[in-house]
Nucleic acid binder design. Structure first.
Lengths: 193, 193
DNA sequence: GTCTATACCGAGATAGAC
DNA sequence: GTCTATCTCGGTATAGAC
């Protein structure tokens, strides 16, 4: 792996776990196996590194969501549940790219708010669109009630994920999975036809 | 107001909006109208101030939740919805004590994780107990389905709040309220008898 | 209790040898 | 590209006069 890629990867993990200020250039350099001054050969500033990571994370997230729906021959309930479970699994495992996404969606570094949120919000918008399309199909098939609009159902579904995201740094894996089950059960009861 | 109380209040607001490291002693002192060195007359360290704030926030939150249920002569649905709306309102208004609670539940300052989470988790446990009691009563009255356990319903209800908390720093007030409506609608449909 | 002055440290970033 | 050395800034905290 090239040095620059390794910096990107270690930067992502440290930003995700320690936050922007907690992840010092010294710590990143240590993990890469360099002196901090050598990082500046590859990135002009810490800020430039951070935005490179942010852009990659946003693109990867959309791909992840799409991939969770690329299973043919399932019912809508199964597809939605599979996607939900895939999120729960990554959350419970403290996957660092998801942790990066959640941390900086909620708490972008001071001064970078607008630029960070623009990047992350656009990718979330794309992800939500994927959910909405699945729900619209399910309504057409009569699997989901007409009492709830696709927009409302998609928001409620995304709300489940947000709720679990919030709990990530709060609870252990088994608790998160258990909460996920409760939330899914109530959600599905709330939208099924 | 005594100086120490004012430090506590301004500290809370700055910790909530800027985070632990973002809220420097200089900034806190500026808001109080003191030199930063004078803060040390009242608190031995920034850490001591932070934990004083954390303890107060945790106690206040439990009181807040209890207060949202102290309306007599309502149906369970109305009481739960009232509590939910009270949370939405504070979240949408970016009430700083709720922002403090959410920020440091998810991202406690490095080195303080165990002590901060212990304080905040205990208060959340108490709040969840309040919800569960209401739900148990509602089941006894036949307002909430027996298909879902009180524990599951309470977790799903708390999941709604967590999901909205997550969205707080992401969206504007009107969007949060709209998402809240969608989530409530699906939740109630999911638990009603 | 509040002030000014200062010690001390770790952060981001740059210069220049190799 | 990587290194050592260094600059500058802003942070927490302390000393001592008033």
């Amino acid at each position: 792996m090239h040095t620059k890629e390794k910096i990107l990867l270690e930067g992502m993990e440290l930003f995700a776990t320690l936050g922007y200020h907690g992840a010092s250039m010294t710590k990143i350099a240590d993990r890469v196996g360099l002196q901090k001054s050598s990082l500046y050969t590859h990135y002009n500033s810490k800020e430039a590194l951070f935005f490179d990571v942010t852009t990659k994370i946003a693109a990867d997230y959309v791909e992840f969501v799409k991939s969770t729906f690329e299973n043919n021959g399932q019912t809508t309930q199964e597809k939605l549940y599979f996607s939900f479970q895939a999120h729960v699994k990554d959350l419970a495992n403290h996957d660092s790219s998801i942790e990066f996404y959640n941390r900086f969606s909620s708490y972008p570094p001071k001064g970078f708010e607008d630029r960070v949120l623009k990047i992350l919000r656009e990718s979330e918008e794309q992800a939500r669109t994927v959910f909405k399309e699945e729900i619209t199909k399910a309504q057409a098939d009569g699997d989901i009630t007409e009492d709830v609009s696709p927009e409302e159902a998609a928001r409620a579904f995304y709300g489940l994920l947000d709720g679990l995201s919030y709990e990530t740094s709060y609870y252990d894996m088994d608790i998160i999975e258990s909460h996920g089950d409760s939330m899914w059960k109530v959600f599905w009861r709330g939208v099924k036809a």
